[in-house]
Design a protein around this nucleic acid. Structure first.
Length: 203
DNA sequence: CGGAAGATCCACT
DNA sequence: GTGGATCTTCCGA
């Protein structure tokens, strides 16, 4: 996807990322996964955002770059989460990539996940931490552009708006008024999403 | 299935 | 010192 794709608000980009392909190039392998779940984080005015009230630290520096780069952060002592930075360098907005459906390089992804049985839906990339583990995404990719290797997003299979379900974001119960914002998006009924949920409505 | 607890780092109070 | 944009394992229903 071109840089212009990312230079919009996270709330617009998040649903538009569904169906796109994440292409991760390693030395001898190409891993491809189709995005099925995202969440928008709206920056300074969003209590759930790492950029809440304009917070700016070494960790979240990538949020303050122009849209089209990765923001990768380390969480809970063990996992990484991947975001696509959106908008311009002033707003701190980003889209969390929460889940994807493995398309190519499934065996390699299973290896990265230390999975020895045949993967069931959601096993490899059904959650932001799993997705990063399967695709070998870590701090080394923080700040990288998303328009070229080693990690890029391609057009994939554009999705009809009627297939998009909307709900509340996960794991942000502390976020006061923002807990009910409808900023979680997924392909309705898809089996690779991070949790079964009571989706509210569709777009 | 649903809930609880542990693993374990870093930014911020 | 606290707690988090998580995941896994273990437990009980």
């Amino acid at each position: 996807m071109p840089l212009s794709f990312y230079r919009r608000s996270a709330a617009e980009v998040a649903p538009d990322l569904l169906g796109r392909f994440l292409v991760r190039r390693l030395d001898r392998t190409r891993l491809v996964a189709r995005i099925v779940e995202t969440e928008a984080y709206l920056g300074a005015g969003d209590r759930a955002s790492h950029a809440w009230q304009g917070r700016r630290t070494p960790r979240n520096e990538s949020l303050y770059r122009a849209g089209g780069r990765a923001y990768v952060y380390f969480i809970y002592g063990m996992y990484y989460c991947l975001n696509a930075v959106t908008g311009d360098e002033t707003n701190g907005e980003a889209v969390l990539i929460r889940a994807a459906e493995p398309i190519e390089g499934v065996a390699a992804m299973a290896g990265h996940r230390h999975l020895d049985r045949r993967p069931r839906p959601g096993d490899l990339a059904g959650g932001p931490g799993k997705l990063c583990q399967a695709l070998r995404i870590d701090k080394g990719l923080d700040g990288q552009v998303l328009t070229a290797r080693p990690l890029c997003l391609t057009r994939g299979e554009p999705v009809d708006p009627s297939q998009i379900a909307v709900g509340r974001r996960i794991g942000i119960d502390y976020a006061a008024e923002a807990v009910n914002w409808q900023l979680r998006f997924a392909l309705a009924g898809n089996r690779h999403v991070s949790k079964p949920f009571p989706w509210k409505s569709s777009l």
